[in-house]
């Protein structure tokens, strides 16, 4: 748990952060979201003491970060930035081994860890370990940067627009891999982005910032369905209902009826449990069907359910009714 209490930071006469108070939960992915210049990167860099706040207190698990030596603190936090910043004069293996090296691990342990991580991020270890950054594609380099951040198995992971410089296709697969990795590792991730869809896809919790002031915090569904003010409403955009559908998985919204008695016609398209409702709706509009089966889950998903979910004016949303 990382707690911010009344944090303020000035750059010259400009206030970058204004009495920011928030709590970043343990073991979840928290997203700092906002337009450029909103203070989200500053917030991130405060956590590993690359920046020192002018006012207020940051504490990790109840202990002020003032009590940590900056270097020690940073070694317990993986750090990934947009520009990748692999050291160009070191091989992939040496780059991944940087923090373990700083922590004085033995060679054997470092090597084993490197191979493990290359495997985790889906790159062939023997092929990639001795390559140099100049020989990698953008997507590969960013995967290595993530591996480097995870090397010493830090409990915290700070990511500053890590997929911002990657092309859209690669970005999506990186995001999927990130979701996969995070499901396994359950790190406390603080993730900075200006991309709402990325925030909705990856985040467990989203913090929306503007001009250094926290506008709203909550689950992706909260942010999309109940924007706290005009700014957040504008930021999520007029198509927020469709974006919200991105967040819901088809497997969770079937009617639950047993259909073994009357199986669907063979040519009826089927959804996967992991597909989101936007895909479901799209498929319904395409085929003209009002309901679709979901593979491996009993029951069907109905167009009406989807419509009621996106009808944000009426409090019929199952998630917000609780």
């Amino acid at each position: 748990m990382i707690q911010f209490e009344n944090i303020s930071k000035w750059y010259g006469k400009q206030k970058a952060l204004d009495t920011l108070t928030m709590t970043i939960p343990e073991g979840k992915t928290s997203i700092l979201l906002g337009p450029s210049g909103c203070g989200k990167s500053t917030t991130l860099r405060l956590i590993n003491k690359l920046i020192i706040p002018d006012e207020g207190e940051i504490s990790i698990k109840g202990r002020s970060i003032r009590d940590y030596r900056a270097e020690e603190l940073r070694r317990s936090m993986g750090y990934v930035i947009q520009s990748i910043a692999l050291l160009p004069h070191m091989t992939v293996e040496e780059n991944i081994g940087l923090v373990p090296d700083l922590l004085k691990w033995e060679e054997q342990r470092k090597e084993k860890r490197c191979l493990e991580l290359l495997d985790l991020i889906g790159l062939d270890a023997e092929q990639y370990r001795s390559k140099y950054p100049a020989q990698l594609s953008g997507g590969e380099a960013q995967r290595i940067a993530v591996a480097r951040a995870l090397a010493a198995d830090p409990p915290y992971l700070l990511m500053d627009e890590p997929f911002g410089a990657v092309d859209p296709l690669n970005r999506e697969s990186l995001q999927n891999e990130f979701i996969e990795i995070q499901r396994k590792l359950k790190k406390t991730v603080v993730f900075v982005t200006h991309d709402l869809e990325e925030a909705v896809r990856l985040g467990d919790r989203i913090f929306v910032l503007k001009n250094g002031i926290l506008q709203q915090s909550g689950s992706p569904a909260d942010i999309l369905s109940k924007p706290a003010n005009e700014f957040v409403r504008d930021f999520v955009g007029p198509d927020r209902s469709l974006k919200l559908l991105n967040y819901y998985l088809a497997g969770n919204f079937t009617d639950g009826t047993d259909e073994t008695d009357h199986p669907p016609a063979p040519e009826t398209p089927e959804l996967n449990a992991g597909d989101n409702l936007k895909t479901a709706l799209s498929l319904m509009l395409e085929t003209g069907l009002s309901s679709l089966p979901v593979k491996g889950v009993s029951g069907r998903i109905h167009r009406k359910t989807i419509e009621s979910l996106v009808n944000l004016k009426e409090p019929r949303n199952p998630e917000t009714e609780e």
């Binding site: 690359l50 750090y79 910043a85 050291l87 940087l98 700083l102 480097r148 700070l158």
Partner: peptide, 11 residues
């Protein structure tokens, strides 16, 4: 960015 990355790693 390289200095930033190095510092961020705890050098």
């Amino acid at each position: 960015r390289l200095l930033d990355a190095g510092r961020g790693m705890g050098m």
